[in-house]
Each structure stands twice: as structure tokens, then as C-alpha cells.
């Protein structure tokens, strides 16, 4: 044998030489797993098994609360878009995937609103900085929905209508009527 080979001494005694006890011990381990998983998974007799595998399309793992999915735009109480077209999110976006064209809002208290709000989901790097930057809780990424596959690249660009489709009225106060944040502490 070559010098680099480390020869491991055989365990002594009849126990070590026959391996029968070691074989029985090993089989007991595998048998224990079999007896836990077989009645539970195949026969459905017990709830708890050791099986970690999920049958994917039927069973899905719940995403954590902070998962970042597809964007959505939130709504005011009257159903209008919450966004005031302040251009914070396209400014902070590292992938330049947000396009906003502002316009005059008919409501004088709101002053400004987006005429075009588009997000190119193919360019988006899902960093979440737009959500951080938004001063009025207008854009969120909490949908837990993946960007769907599209046949054409243009289809991956979501317009305001598509973004508002998942939107809900936000409970955040808007327009400076709430308490000053420093006074809360």
C-alpha cells in the first residue's frame, strides 16, 4: 500500500469483526425513519413526519412577511392613486426601471399626480428602495407575487392600471395631518 494511505485498524472482538451489531444498529436507524414517515406520508395515519420535501404546485412554502414581490400602487379613500409624482422612486431606483410623467391634479389639496406610471419588471432588481423612498406609502412590494413570464418584453412593463389592480386603500395618513414623528418617541 502507498505511504499516503492511512490504514484504519479493525475494531477488535467478534462484535467488530462480524459487523453484525453495527449493521443491526444502522438498520434500526433507517427502520425508525421508515416507521415514522411511511404511516404518516403514505397511509396518512399520522401528522408528523420527518419529510421536508413539499409537493410544489399543490403545497407552497409561505413567504416571510418582508418578502418583496411585484409592485403595486396604493389608493386613496376615493380610489384615486396615492402617488403625488414627487419623483423620489425613479430617482433612487438603481435600475432606472420606473417612469413617471406628472400632471396637474384636479384636486387642489393634492396638486400633482402621475399621468404615466410605468415599471419595467424586467429591469427591476427587486431592491425595494422605491418603497423606502416613497414619502406617502404609494408604492409597495408586499404582493408576494413573482414577475410573470411574458411572450414579449413590452408585456413586462406594468402601467398604472396594472399596478393599481392590486392596490388597496392605505391607512397611512397623508398630507401632514398626522402627529409629527419625533413627538411619538
Amino acid at each position: 500500500m502507498a505511504v499516503t494511505v492511512k490504514v484504519v485498524a479493525r475494531p477488535a472482538g467478534i462484535r467488530g469483526h462480524t459487523y453484525l451489531v453495527a449493521v443491526a444498529e444502522g438498520m434500526w436507524v433507517t427502520f425508525r425513519h421508515l416507521m415514522k414517515n411511511f404511516p404518516g406520508n403514505v397511509l396518512g395515519l399520522r401528522k408528523k413526519t420527518d419529510i421536508a420535501t413539499l409537493s410544489y404546485p399543490e403545497e407552497k412554502q409561505a413567504y416571510p412577511a418582508r418578502n418583496r414581490g411585484l409592485h403595486r400602487l396604493m389608493k386613496r379613500e376615493n380610489g384615486d392613486v396615492r402617488c403625488v409624482a414627487c419623483m423620489m422612486c425613479p430617482t433612487v431606483c438603481p435600475a432606472h426601471c420606473i417612469t413617471i410623467v406628472p400632471e396637474e391634479a384636479p384636486d387642489n389639496a393634492v396638486e400633482k399626480r402621475p399621468r404615466i406610471f410605468e415599471i419595467d419588471e424586467l429591469r427591476c432588481v427587486v431592491c425595494g428602495l422605491c418603497v423606502e423612498a416613497c414619502p406617502c406609502d404609494a408604492i409597495r412590494m408586499d404582493t408576494k407575487v413573482h414577475a410573470p413570464p411574458t411572450l414579449r418584453r413590452a408585456d413586462a412593463i406594468l402601467d398604472m392600471e396594472a399596478l393599481l389592480a392590486r392596490g388597496e386603500p392605505s391607512i397611512a395618513t397623508q398630507g401632514g395631518t398626522g402627529p409629527f414623528w419625533r413627538e411619538k418617541v
Binding site: T30, F31, H33, L34, N37, F38, N41, V42, T49, D50, I51, A52, T53, S55
Partner: peptide, 24 residues
């Protein structure tokens, strides 16, 4: 395959269904 999966905490083949007839 199925028994080995059960012994190794996997699921093993369980998908060859004939319509409603599943039979594990």
C-alpha cells in the same frame, strides 16, 4: 424508490396517477 425515500426523509415517486386513481 418509495421505501428508500421514506427511509431518507424524502417523498419518492408519488405522481403517476391515472386520473383520480392515485394509489400513492
Amino acid at each position: 424508490r418509495r421505501q428508500s425515500a421514506m427511509m431518507q426523509d424524502r417523498l419518492g415517486p408519488c405522481r403517476a396517477n391515472l386520473g383520480r386513481f392515485k394509489a400513492w
